[in-house]
């Protein structure tokens, strides 16, 4: 029961926050009504989670070789919930997937579980690499979109119309791509237990992976519907300050990176060409968005970047995982006593 409650809390928090990554620019610049954007968000987040969440979710099962007992999973989730709420209060975007992994590592240290350190190090490399990828890709996409509009010689009203359409269409695609990562971050930790029989208030509930992903994605949608309106408007207006073309470039960057690390087909295709192997893993949309914004800001020689705020966010990428790790270590140790 406590697991379901914790999952629901995380899913609702994620829904409230991450809807802004997808439709923030469209709603903030009044190109799309909030209610319509939430409907699109819910529909595509559910599709994305059911179709693709299985791949990044497998990371959790592969990371810990002798996976913990399902009755102790709440010890991993509680630190994540606590740290996420604290970071929300401090208005710092946090990555749930990273928090879950570090909480799992902290838990495993105390419980003496075997950790697949090769996979863990690979995750760290890719987590460090994705913001750099986002930084470069956002610049490339921004230049590409501007070049296309220049070649097509469209007037500002035509550009406005095309951007509106693109923000809605690619917002839906981004929600689809994000669905896999968000759901994997929330319920991926349960992925080794594909068939769970839960007894909730005398009801027997048989959960398989698809039902679990559906359940989590619906809760994400609920979080977006109930609480994201204010965040979407605030974040949206911040994004729209960067103008619509860069907002579209940020959306393309999100889609590109999120799909690469969730779609089996793309991973197989890319692994043929790349000198290193990539694999499905849950990523943070907030980190990608932030790095993309910094990439766009490079056009103006970072004049619009607030140094204090930027340093705070970058530091949080180190402090949050360490905090979650320590909390998990502490909580599991106390529980063990």
């Amino acid at each position: 029961m406590i697991d379901i409650l914790l999952i629901a809390i995380i899913a609702i928090i994620i829904g409230a926050n991450d809807a802004s990554n997808v439709f923030g620019s469209a709603v903030g610049s009044k190109m799309l009504k909030f209610k319509i954007s939430v409907v699109f968000f819910i529909i595509f987040i559910i599709f994305g989670s059911i179709i693709n969440a299985e791949n990044p979710s497998q990371v959790y099962g592969n990371l810990i070789l002798d996976y913990p007992d399902i009755n102790k999973i709440f010890l991993i989730i509680i630190p994540v919930v606590v740290i996420t709420i604290v970071s929300l209060i401090l208005k710092i975007p946090s990555s749930i997937s990273q928090s879950v992994i570090f909480s799992l590592i902290g838990f495993s240290f105390v419980e003496n579980l075997s950790i697949n350190f090769d996979l863990f190090y690979n995750l760290i490399y890719f987590w460090l690499a994705t913001p750099f990828m986002a930084f470069i890709l956002s610049i490339l996409f921004c230049r590409l979109i501007s070049l296309i509009f220049k070649i097509l010689r469209l007037n500002i009203f035509q550009i406005d119309y095309q951007i509106r359409l693109a923000l809605i269409f690619f917002g839906c695609v981004a929600a689809f791509a994000l669905g896999a990562h968000l759901t994997a971050a929330i319920v991926g930790i349960y992925s080794p237990f594909l068939d769970i029989d839960l007894n909730v208030l005398n009801f027997s509930l048989a959960l398989n992976d698809k039902k679990l992903y559906f359940f989590a994605s619906v809760l994400i949608g609920l979080g977006a519907y109930l609480f994201s309106q204010k965040i979407v408007r605030t974040i949206g207006s911040q994004i729209s300050n960067i103008k619509p073309v860069p907002a579209l470039a940020i959306l393309f960057t999100q889609i590109f990176i999120l799909f690469i690390f969730s779609s089996d087909y793309l991973i197989e295709a890319l692994n043929i060409f790349l000198p290193f192997q990539i694999f499905a893993m849950p990523l943070s949309a907030s980190h990608i968005t932030f790095a993309s914004i910094i990439g766009i800001a490079s056009f103006n020689k970072f004049r619009e970047v607030k140094p204090k705020h930027t340093i705070k966010i970058i530091l949080s990428w180190i402090i949050i995982p360490i905090s979650v790790f320590c909390c998990s270590l502490l909580l599991t140790s106390i529980y063990k006593i």
């Binding site: 610049s29 009044k30 190109m31 500002i156 009203f157 729209s240 103008k243 619509p244």
Partner: peptide, 11 residues
């Protein structure tokens, strides 16, 4: 119609 939000003022 909230068109061209970023350059509306200029136009």
């Amino acid at each position: 119609e909230t068109l061209i939000p970023e350059i509306r003022g200029d136009v």
